[in-house]
Design a protein around this nucleic acid. Structure first.
Length: 569
RNA sequence: GGGCCUGUAGCUCAAUGGUUAGAGCAGGGCGCUCAUAACGCCUUGGUUGGGGGUUCGAGUCCCUCCGGGCCUACCA
């Protein structure tokens, strides 16, 4: 038995995420977590909400609530939706937790002690009307290059020219519209990533099996221009982890907080501590997942994220760990994803375009979404959601191939032999051979985290069941050889339980329904297919389940297509 | 501007430089009647974005052009 630490990129607190966010991190992480558990491995699967930063402050203000209250509410909302999608986190934490505050301050202190922190005085735009410093992109004005009047302080969206906020003509606050802006000097802490460049490069170079998407982004940042740059890790905000050097005050840093991207990955660690605290466990219980000097040597650590998160996970966070000089576990494999597009354009949180997680669950059960999203995961390039494709996949794969198989087997048996597994002769050698080959391929794809290929193989395994029934034809055989027909049906009933076990990572609810119908609770992974298909013995009672998957009708599809075309209400 | 990814059948995708470029869906035909009008079998469909090059051999490697996308360090 191996041990797997699995983390999903932590979703930002601000609002409900769309299906593109889901398929890029939480969902594939859940797939692998469930699979590894199914294989009998010890798994700690962690996720959290990323709560600090300017957008959270602004959203809270807009909602007329204290930011702490806003975040607590949104965390509860996201936790509920995660449950709805059956995301099997061992703990769903919060980056604003006390554990993360302490740990973030601890790391900063370690980094400072080891000489990896420098203080930099810089000039930044301050808005008197808003009473806050403005990040570059929160300043708008006219582009000096093309004259576009909604250019942002970091870049003009119209002509794509990179800008400095002071370049803008007639700059104004994007928050209040105020033009009462001034440039102030402020001091910030920088993480000296440049001093760790060699170590980071060697580490990245050693990861030859990582997705190209992951390593190419890391190498770009390492080698582009002057190489890896130091990064500011503090901000002039109220909402965040107060800047401290361990437990000591940090002179000159009063009133400042750490940058969200400094404390967010540390939450992966703090979340394990939250998990321990929430479950009456000791420090040793979580440290054995994270400290290589306290038992984490045999842990394999897998991270899942969208491509926009890659620089922070390949460089900044590892730099934090390396620079601490402490034996924290570094990630072993980073699975990164491209983006999911929606009907010819992008999913957009700000424009409310596409399907959001709560909306998805309001129209169809989670398994429908899980299956489509995972079997179309944007692994090698951006992929595209269309309602036609979704309807086709769900109806064909889930309803026709798998759902109908369960129906035909259980109903045939009930009609001919009653609701118990019949006694019959041996059968199905060819099927067992095929399933064995395909199951091994499925396992390899899951181990390699090739999500699409795993889904394809799983579907082929379902199809094999229909092929078997069609060629065995118990409905014909029963007329001349009842014993043989009974053997076929017994095998087919066992096939349902077998499918429940191996399909559970993709479609946990349907798997549970299938298992319940077989009145069984044996989720043992089928290392030997022949043995697995002999689990339900003659005389074992079963029930005919409700239809596993209802098909999506054309009218429904058209209605949803229209409903989600425009702006989110 | 720079870097990276990507372009393969109507659609969604496969193919360590090595047989005749393969699957699923959609389309066509046949079979079956247990089943959610479901299932199975057979089948149509390709100048691998264009052009050039390297090689005994290129979807794959190189150059170039065209299209799509992402990143470019103070959003997260």
């Amino acid at each position: 038995m191996a041990r797997y630490l699995i983390t999903s990129a932590i979703p930002y607190i601000n609002g409900i995420k769309h299906l593109g966010n889901l398929v890029g991190s939480q969902l594939p992480a859940d797939l692998i977590a469930r699979y590894m558990r199914g294989r009998g491995h010890e798994v700690l699967f962690l996720c959290a909400t990323d709560e600090h930063g300017t957008p959270a402050e602004l959203a809270a203000a807009k909602a007329g609530k204290p930011v702490e209250e806003f975040c607590a509410e949104m965390h509860a909302v996201q936790a509920e939706i995660a449950k709805g999608f059956r995301l099997s986190f061992d703990h769903f934490g919060r980056s604003s937790s006390l554990q993360n505050r302490n740990l973030t301050q601890h790391f900063a202190g370690q980094l400072a002690d080891n000489g990896y922190i420098t203080e930099v005085a810089e000039k930044q735009v301050y808005s008197n009307a808003d009473g806050r410093f403005l990040p570059d992109r929160y300043i708008e004005g006219t582009c000096p290059n093309c004259g576009y009047d909604k250019a942002r302080g970091d870049q003009c969206e119209n002509c794509t020219k990179q800008l400095d906020p002071t370049d803008l003509i007639e700059p104004r606050s994007a928050i209040s519209g105020s033009t009462d802006l001034e440039v102030r000097e402020t001091k910030h802490l920088y993480l000296r990533q440049s001093a760790l460049k060699g170590e980071l490069s060697a580490w990245i170079d050693s990861k030859t099996d990582w997705p190209i998407l992951t390593t190419s982004i890391a190498k770009k940042w390492l080698n582009d221009g002057d190489g890896l740059q130091d990064r500011g890790i503090t901000r002039d905000l109220h909402w965040g982890v107060p800047v401290k050097k361990g437990t000591e005050d940090w002179p000159g840093m009063e009133g400042k907080v750490f940058y969200v991207w400094f404390d967010a990955p540390i939450e992966y660690i703090a979340c394990a501590a939250e998990w321990a605290d929430a479950n009456g466990k000791t420090d040793a219980d979580w440290e054995r997942w994270w400290r290589t000097d306290k038992g984490a040597d045999d842990v394999t650590y897998l991270q899942f994220m969208g491509k926009d998160n890659v620089p922070f996970h390949t460089l900044s966070f590892p730099a934090t760990i390396m620079g601490s000089g402490e034996p924290w576990k570094l990630v072993d494999y980073i699975k990164s994803f491209n983006y999911l597009n929606y009907d010819g354009g992008q999913f957009s949180t700000s424009q409310g375009r596409g399907i959001f997680m709560d909306q998805a669950l309001s129209i169809l059960p989670s398994d429908y979404w899980r299956w489509w999203l995972l079997s179309h995961a944007p692994e090698s390039s951006d992929s595209e959601f269309t309602w036609e494709n979704f309807q086709g996949s769900v109806n064909k794969d889930l309803a026709d191939v798998l759902g109908n198989l369960v129906s035909r087997v259980t109903k045939f048996c009930r009609a001919k032999f009653g609701e118990t597994v019949p006694q019959g002769g041996p059968t199905g050698e060819a099927l067992i051979a095929e399933l064995t080959t395909r199951l091994r391929a499925y396992e390899q794809h899951m181990q390699a985290m090739e999500v699409r290929k795993a889904a394809t193989e799983l579907r082929a395994i379902w199809v094999a069941g229909n092929e078997y029934l069609q060629s065995a034809a118990p409905w014909t055989v029963i007329k001349t050889d009842e014993e043989a027909a009974k053997g076929m049906v017994r095998l087919a009933l066992n096939l349902i339980r077998f499918y429940a076990v191996i399909s559970r990572p993709f479609i946990p609810d349907a798997a549970q329904t299938m298992m319940d119908a077989m009145q069984c609770d044996d989720w043992t992974w089928p290392d030997d297919v022949a043995t697995a298909l002999d689990t339900l013995k003659p005389g074992h009672a079963f029930t005919v389940p409700e239809v596993l998957f209802t098909k999506i009708a054309d009218e429904q599809r058209a209605e949803w297509q229209a409903r989600f075309a425009g702006i989110r209400a």
